[in-house]
Design a protein around this nucleic acid. Structure first.
Length: 409
DNA sequence: ATATTCACG
DNA sequence: ACGTACGTGAATATT
């Protein structure tokens, strides 16, 4: 994948970067930390800030320990429900989100966190890694670290390039095809839920996939007892969390946290879900029983993962092992299928003698580079190859995107 | 070396 | 009362 030189969206130095470490001055309260002209704080001219009122003159916002002390010990924000860490109070994003109305400094801190994450991990790190000979960044894939059979990517990790936030999407937009080429992104649609439908044999989930019904809408219709046409966006959002959480052993409390609802409400969603999808309920129980008897879990194509703690005396370790036993067959089958897809697409490209390269694999997605004149034909062929790598009881579907950059593909 | 946080599927 | 979806890798701070 080519680096982002000569692209408008990733021009470096066009905007001043935030200084680091960022000292808390009054400017940090209203917006993310601004760069200062010199490294030393202008103590003599700085206006009184709430930090000084709190007995604090300087703070490394990058230190969770210092930040927790400031928010919870000095400013006295409500610590009810705030998790403790070994070093003090947790300041993770979920914790801070709950406090945005409690103090005006919280939102700027969250914004600062996002900016520093993206700058430090991607904007600063990636450009120096461009290989001068190829003009691209090259990752290293590891085939033997992930217990489920997934590949991992390191130095740099190209499997965690941002996309979820608007700002993150701009970073992904910096990954572009070679001059005169386009990227073809081919991703499996809801691969793990399809695998769950296949492995469990659940008739309702299976028919949703076979009838090309949106599964989250379908689940919402069941959980909320309304016709599919009347499912609201909010109900679909809840159903999506239920689908992805409960089928992997997420607890009521975990679901409550994910959805920001009460434990009672989450338990009600859970109850209704398993009442409507009893086959999935039984499958999730059986899979743990089987794994306990055998000492591990096996994926679709036979990869074995030992899970010793299924018989641990520690309830915490045992429960964690049970969730691994529930998750491994699905995540592992997804890994099996994408590997088959890599083989099938590579063979097809070779057989057709297309001037097309496979660039990346990202768990349920493959990224290729193609001349634009061939892209539609190649994309359709790759889609067909990927959808037919393995016959499940429900269809596999692949979405194809074509663009000159990874964000739009 | 370990802890915390957060980027992705 | 506890602790509560799975799988990764990287950056920074702390010890």
């Amino acid at each position: 994948m080519r680096s982002c030189r000569s692209r408008r969206s990733c021009r470096r130095g066009s905007r001043p970067a935030a200084s680091w470490p960022c000292t808390a001055t009054s400017s940090c309260r209203s917006r993310a930390c601004s760069p200062r002209s010199s490294g030393s704080a202008s103590r003599s001219t700085r206006p009184t800030s709430s930090y000084e009122a709190a007995g604090t003159t300087e703070l490394n916002i990058g230190s969770p320990k210092q930040l927790g002390e400031l928010l919870f010990d000095k400013l006295g924000l409500d610590t009810k429900g705030v998790k403790r860490t070994k070093l003090g109070w947790s300041t993770e994003a979920d914790t801070l989100e709950a406090l945005v109305d409690a103090h005006p400094v919280i939102r700027p801190i969250l914004d600062h966190r996002e900016l520093m994450k993206l700058k430090g991990t991607y904007l600063d790190a990636l450009p120096p890694l461009v290989n001068p000979a190829t003009g691209r960044v090259h990752t290293t894939f590891n085939q033997v670290v992930a217990e489920t059979g997934r590949l991992s990517s390191q130095d740099p990790n190209l499997q965690n390039i941002p996309i979820r936030s608007e700002l993150g999407r701009k970073i992904r937009r910096g990954f572009i095809a070679a001059p005169g080429h386009v990227l073809i992104a081919a991703d499996y649609s809801q691969i793990e839920l399809r695998i769950l439908a296949h492995l469990s044999g659940d008739p309702l989930l299976g028919s949703a996939f076979r009838d090309h019904v949106d599964v989250h809408t379908q689940t919402a219709a069941e959980v909320f007892s309304v016709p599919r046409e009347q499912v609201t966006a909010e109900q679909r959002r809840i159903a999506k969390a239920v689908n992805y959480g409960l089928s992997y052993g997420q607890s009521d409390v975990g679901l409550a946290r994910a959805l920001d609802v009460t434990r009672t409400q989450a338990a009600e969603y859970s109850r209704r879900y398993f009442q409507r999808f009893p086959t999935i309920h039984k499958f999730m129980e059986d899979i743990v029983t089987l794994a306990r008897a055998q000492g591990g879990a096996r994926t679709l194509l036979g990869r074995w993962r030992p899970i010793p703690n299924l018989t641990s005396k520690s309830p915490q370790a045992r429960h964690a092992a049970e969730r691994m036993a529930q998750n491994t067959p699905m995540q592992g089958a997804g890994a099996d299928l994408i590997k088959l897809a890599m083989l099938a697409t590579a063979r097809r490209i070779t057989r057709e003698n297309w001037p097309v390269r496979m660039l990346l694999t990202v768990h349920d997605e493959l990224v290729f580079e193609s001349p634009p004149s061939l892209a539609d034909e190649v994309g359709a062929a790759l889609q067909q190859e990927m959808e037919s790598v393995y016959q499940l009881s429900i269809p596999l579907e692949v979405d194809i995107g074509i663009a000159d950059n990874w964000a739009d593909a």
